[in-house]
Design a binder for these strands. Structure first.
Lengths: 141, 141
DNA sequence: TGACAAAACGGAATAATTACGTCTTACATA
DNA sequence: TATGTAAGACGTAATTATTCCGTTTTGTCA
């Protein structure tokens, strides 16, 4: 039984989410995939075992899980993509393959390099740093 | 007559785009706004003077202009936002206000700090570095 | 000025995402 | 193990952003 799943169960319990067969399968798929996937991909996969699964359920679960840090999200190519949160737990960024969604982790963060950039009174809430391209596997077609 | 508009006319001519009253107004609005705006905002503004303006026309022009670097784009809050390209011409990044879309320019780029990150054969095509928050003006409500 | 390619129109299609009212189920508790 | 209840799931429909396409209008240049 994966460490990721253990962690997910804990967080769900803490936050008052129940585990259901669908949620288990959704998490299983994402932990296995280990890349950014779209809601549509999730739907296509999970409907093999749960033919009536609705998008409402898929989006609700994906967003709920992202809210409790079981998943990470990014907006890419006009749609939201979801992946298992990196186990490291520490702040990090990604190289993201545009073909398959696989990622490589960058353990550095440009915010650390920047001096105080808010002289003007800008209040920083968040940031995004992502590198896009093609992974070695996809380059070989 | 603005330098930005001169530059836009040049680029349009070079790329074979015709200037029309609507395009002129669209550019005027964006050059004046000087912040990220959505297609909807553009539509609402331009329809004051061109009531029948269609979204097709708006999106076509916005994307055409972005393609020839008269505009910059970013994907934010589930939609595409457009703004006048920064005149500097040099590569840069932005702090973006989530309330009003105004930006502050960061002249540094994290890619310069990163050593070679593509040891694994990942081919870098592009990157995105944006800082989100509230600008001083919006903080005062 | 006239011809022609580009631009705009307009309305409908597509695609992602969310809302909502109802039915079902996981799970704590007895 | 049975059961009550709040959470989850359903499913359909609404919303919203974006694009497509066939037709009409318009800028530009000879």
């Amino acid at each position: 039984m994966g460490k990721q799943l253990e962690r997910a169960r804990e967080r769900m319990k803490t936050s008052g989410f129940k585990m259901t067969p669908k949620r288990l399968d959704l998490l299983g798929y994402l932990f296995e995939a280990n890349r950014y996937v779209s809601a549509r991909e999730v739907a296509e996969e999970l409907r093999l075992s749960h033919p009536s699964l609705s998008y409402d359920t898929i989006y609700r679960n994906l967003n709920d899980f992202a809210a409790i840090d079981i998943l990470e999200t990014t907006e890419l190519d006009g749609e939201m993509k979801y992946r298992a949160a990196c186990v490291s737990g520490t702040h990090h960024h990604h190289l993201i393959c545009r073909s398959c969604g696989k990622t490589e982790t960058l353990d550095v963060c440009p915010m650390e390099w920047l001096g105080p950039v808010n002289e003007s009174g800008f209040e920083i809430e968040d940031h995004k740093f992502e590198i896009y391209g093609r992974c070695a596997a996809c380059l070989k077609n």
